[in-house]
Every structure is written in C-alpha cells, then in structure tokens.
C-alpha cells in the first residue's frame, strides 16, 4: 500500500463493558484513519480508553458497535480464524509487559509467529533467516538461546519488536512499550521502533509518556472515550527531539493532560 493512503480506519467505534454495574462505556463512536507508513500515537489520561481503542482496531477485542477496516477489508465481520490469520500476516504486537512463553527460549519465542506463518504457506527457512537477521539488527542475537527469565527488560522488549516484525506486518500495534522500562532501556526500544517505522511499517502506539509520544508523526488525544484533538507533528528527527517534546507538552497541557 502506497505511503499516505488510509490503511486502517474505524467508523463509529464504540465499546461498552457490561460486566460492571452500571455498564461502562469506554469508547464513544471513534472515527479514526491511519495512513500507510504513519507512526500514530494515542494519548490520554488513565481510563480514557486508549488501550481499548488499540485492541478494538487490532481485532483483539470485538467492538460493541461500529466497524474497522484494514487495507479495505472489514475486520469486525471476520470469523475468529480469519481474524487470527489477519493478526498473523498483517499485524504485529508489542505490549507493556513482554508476554513471552516461559517454555521457549528467546529465539523460539520470536520465531513462533513466523513458523505459524510458514504453516500458512510462507517459506519456513526464509522466516527463520528473517528472524535471525532481525535479532542481529536489534542487537539481541547473543541472547537467542537464553530463557526469558535470564535477560533484561530492554532486551526482552527488543525481542518483542522482533517477534512483532517476524511476520512482516503492515501495521505494528504497541501498547505502552516502554511503560515497564527505565529511561535508557526506553530509548533503546524507541530507537528500534523508529527504525521499524523508517522501513515503512505503519505503527499505532499507546503511551502516556510525552517523550516517547514525540517520536510519532501524529498524536491523537482521547478523553473519556472520545477523540478530542489531534496533533500533526511530521517525521521525527533526532536533532529536533527536544523541541518536539516541548511542543507536544504545551499542546497536551492545553488539553488538560
């Protein structure tokens, strides 16, 4: 899909949790368009619905109403198996906690979606070579045989990015990817994500950290389940980083952040 065209779109997206009394309306009819190759950041106070929005547009959760399309394909009407296949082949995920399988070493954890994809027809050897290359690129090939309890949080999160990229997704979803890391590890991870974005991968990221959000091309702001404003910031450059962060903070303060 060419740069600039809308790749992911939600219309009238609502989500209500009926397990609470009274039911909690978390998303109130969100209209959102994500352009191909864009790095979109979702911000908002705790409980504003930003993670729910991320999981609803990525098909992890089913919205209560509204619809989501990815590359022109309606996601909300897909079956569980079809949606799983979309996640496998078109999406990648990075979570706040790395969420790796304890029974696999780092490399096998990264390989898992690639192997799963290979089962769906992609070439397995190519997938393995791609994973090895990704680990090399993100500086974690030396820990490939390690158990996940034997490596640092930053290494794990970079491994998480490798796993998300293993299936060559068109969109990478990241939910507070630096939320559990210290500042130096946080920078490692954001450098990695910025690298991925430069390669042309679309990124949708949730964060509450303005420093991290400054990496994005565009920041949208959610309040009580509604999209209240958006800030087009353009491509990130290392030399303007501080300026972007200050501008973003000013904008956020105006929104009551």
């Amino acid at each position: 899909m060419s740069q600039g065209t809308v790749t992911l779109e939600s219309r009238e997206l609502s989500k209500t949790y009926y397990s609470t009394d009274p039911p909690t309306e978390v998303l109130l009819g969100i209209d959102l368009s994500v352009r191909a190759g864009e790095f979109l950041v979702i911000m908002g106070a705790s409980g504003s619905g930003k993670s729910t929005l991320l999981y609803s547009i990525s098909g992890m959760d089913k919205p209560t109403s509204g619809n989501v399309t990815l590359e022109g394909r309606e996601l909300t009407s897909l079956s569980d198996a079809e949606m799983s296949n979309v996640r496998l082949t078109r999406m990648g995920f990075v979570f706040q906690q790395p969420h790796f399988l304890r029974n696999l070493d780092v490399r096998d954890n990264i390989l898992l979606p690639a192997l799963k994809g290979a089962a769906k027809g992609k070439d397995k050897d190519a997938a393995i070579a791609r994973v090895d290359a990704l680990m090399e690129r993100f500086g974690i090939s030396h820990i490939k045989d390690h158990g996940i309890t034997q490596v640092s949080g930053g290494q794990l999160q970079r491994a998480s990015i490798c796993r998300a990229l293993a299936g060559e997704p068109s969109v990478l979803f990241a939910d507070e990817p630096t939320g559990a890391l210290n500042s130096s590890m946080s920078d490692e991870v954001m450098d990695a994500l910025t690298d991925v974005h430069r390669d042309g991968t679309t990124i949708v990221m949730v964060t509450h950290d303005p420093g991290v959000a400054a990496r994005g091309d565009r920041v949208i702001y959610l309040r009580d389940g509604a999209l209240v404003d958006a800030n087009e910031m353009g491509p990130w450059q290392p030399d303007t980083a501080q300026q972007r962060e200050d501008d973003l903070l000013t904008w956020l303060r105006e929104l009551g952040f």
Partner: peptide, 8 residues
C-alpha cells in the same frame, strides 16, 4: 492470540 493463533 495476538500473534495469530485462533481460538480453535
């Protein structure tokens, strides 16, 4: 589920 395994 996130990395593409279906519920089945």
């Amino acid at each position: 589920s996130a990395i593409g395994f279906s519920a089945n």
